[in-house]
């Protein structure tokens, strides 16, 4: 019965994660022409969604926070190691892709860059807070609760995470290649959660990675 409960919870969270942004994409562009207001609406709805996810997994999250407070060094140390694996791996994978396919560019990078340029602070909160926690709950917590085999969990959740990062559109080689580094990132985040059995670990890895990218943006790289 406990497994069935986890399955219902997991599928509900996963479906909401897909449906809410889809509904927002349908109606937000038509109610305002301002990108900032649109982003703010999106932010509010996604915040409510995250709140709902946290409520659903409230007990587990409280347990993880307590475990982190008891032994923070283990989680932080693991996060740093996995963050370094993430950075190194992404660099190697990207270089290999550029070698094979010189015209490669990340499918959604242009759009994200322009959003950052126009709405820097909203995007920082959006990425550092909302995306960070929501994605860890959906792709890590939901999948880990249901899939017991650790290798299958890491590979499957990473692959699905990779596909979701390209905005569901796969129509050319570039889109397909973009899945690879993101899927790798997903696998690293899932592995970090598997290692410590604590959702705070992938959150920290993701946060370190965001800080790394942010420093790049601020330095104009």
């Amino acid at each position: 019965m406990e497994n069935i409960n986890k399955l219902i919870k997991g599928i509900s969270v996963f479906l909401l994660y897909i449906l809410v942004p889809y509904v927002l994409n349908m109606f937000l562009p038509s109610i305002t022409e301002s990108t900032v207001i649109e982003l703010l609406y999106r932010f509010i709805f996604m915040f409510l969604l995250l709140l709902l996810f946290v409520l659903i997994y409230k007990d587990d999250i409280i347990r993880d926070i307590k475990a982190f407070k008891e032994k923070p060094s283990r989680v932080i140390k693991t996060s740093i190691i996995y963050f370094l694996c993430l950075i190194g791996g992404i660099m190697v994978i990207s270089s290999l892709i550029y070698l094979v396919y010189p015209d490669f560019s990340y499918t959604n990078s242009g759009l994200i860059d322009s959003l950052f340029e126009e709405n820097f602070f909203i995007m920082i909160i959006y990425v550092f807070f909302l995306t960070l926690f929501t994605e860890q709950i959906v792709f890590r917590k939901v999948f880990r609760d249901i899939i017991k085999n650790k290798y299958f969990f890491i590979i499957f959740s990473g692959l699905i995470y990779g596909i979701f990062q390209i905005g569901y559109v796969v129509s050319d080689v570039n889109d397909l290649l973009t899945v690879i580094p993101f899927a790798y990132a997903g696998m690293i985040l899932s592995s970090s959660m598997e290692k410590t059995d604590n959702i705070i670990t992938p959150c920290l890895v993701y946060m370190f990675y965001d800080l790394f990218l942010l420093s790049g943006i601020l330095m104009g790289i």
Binding site: I4, L7, I11, F14, I146, K148, F156
Partner: peptide
């Protein structure tokens, strides 16, 4: 993707 994920999650359970 949605259908694959749901099938895999149900199968795992």
């Amino acid at each position: 993707v949605m259908v694959v994920v749901i099938i895999v999650l149900i199968a795992s359970t």
